[in-house]
Simulated assay, not measured.
Amino acid sequence: MANASVRPPAVAGQFYPGDPLVLSAQLSEMLSTAVALEAVRPPKAVIVPHAGYIYSGPVAATAYNALAPLRDVVRKVVMLGPTHRMAVNGFALPATQAFSTPFGEVPLCRSDWEALQRRTDVVVDDRPHAQEHCLEVQLPFLQTVLGAFELVPILVGMAGTEAVADLIESLWGGPETLIVISSDLSHYLSYEQARHCDRATVAQLIRLQDGLKHEQACGATPINGLLRAAARHGLEPHLLDLRNSGDTAGDRGRVVGYASIAFCESPDHAAAARH
């Protein structure tokens, strides 16, 4: 009988391989061939896409490669993504206490899970999480590059930018905490339209300018909150990869845009923090 305290994988065998050996081989291939547009310091936060691995996996891999130096540092991953299947007011936490993938279970951080429930805009509800892919598809990457960690999985529904930023701030922590925002960019434009639109979106992100619309990114709401929090903490955004499904595994008639962006402490900010 299934363990009710564990969320089973919903899209294994669809968005990514359900067989752990095949999954491991695919991840190894994507991570070993990923070349970022620029080298960066180990990030505090990343924005990564969440489509099927054949479409967005190579783009996501550029961000996950950047996390490799943090394998013995990061012990908690805060993940925020949009709800694709069920409307939510505010933020949804699962009631389950672990997420399962073909690689095994990732436990939730119980103390943060309990603390978040003191917020009036947080609900505990397994239903939005049950079939949602945007957080799940990140887990095999994270298990591969980080090893063991605890998870804070949050689905973001109707919420203001300041509320999202405040929630992220409450979970910010130190070097042991990584923040992952799961989002694709434009949806179902032509190849050239998407390239134009996504370049403009990324330019806005790199300026740390919140106010993204959902036409620009399905995860606009959590991204906007991260941009505000990142600005307060002096993080610098770096574009690691920007492509779309027409570049990876799809036709170019109607494409989905993908970007990987790393948010890193600036050298100046890091030096100031040591004094």
Rank of each mutant, 00 (worst) to 15 (best):
M1T: 14
A4M: 02
A4W: 00
A4D: 12
S5W: 03
V6A: 10
R7V: 02
A12P: 03
G13E: 03
Q14Y: 11
G18W: 05
D19S: 08
D19Y: 01
L27F: 15
M30G: 07
M30L: 15
M30Q: 12
L31T: 14
L31E: 15
S32P: 04
T33A: 14
A36N: 06
A36W: 03
E38S: 13
I47L: 11
V48H: 13
P49I: 11
G52S: 11
G52V: 02
P58C: 05
P58Q: 09
V59K: 10
A60Q: 13
A63C: 12
N65Y: 03
A68S: 10
R71S: 11
D72Y: 02
V73Q: 09
V74Y: 07
K76P: 10
K76R: 15
H84L: 08
R85M: 13
M86P: 04
L93C: 07
A95N: 04
T96R: 13
A98K: 12
F99M: 07
F99P: 07
P107E: 10
L108I: 08
S111A: 11
S111R: 05
D112H: 13
L116G: 06
R118H: 12
V123C: 02
V124R: 09
D125C: 12
P128M: 05
H129G: 08
Q131S: 04
Q131I: 06
E136Y: 00
Q143C: 09
E150A: 02
L151T: 00
P153S: 01
I154Y: 00
A159W: 06
G160N: 09
G160A: 01
G160C: 00
T161H: 02
T161V: 08
A163N: 15
A165E: 05
D166F: 02
E169K: 11
S170E: 06
L171R: 06
L171P: 05
V180I: 03
S182M: 02
S182H: 04
Y191I: 03
E192P: 00
Q193G: 09
Q193I: 09
V202A: 09
D210H: 13
K213S: 15
E215F: 10
G225E: 13
R228W: 00
L235F: 07
P237R: 00
A249Y: 05
R252E: 15
Y258L: 10
I261K: 14
E265V: 06
P267V: 14
H269R: 14
A270I: 12
R274N: 06
H275Q: 05
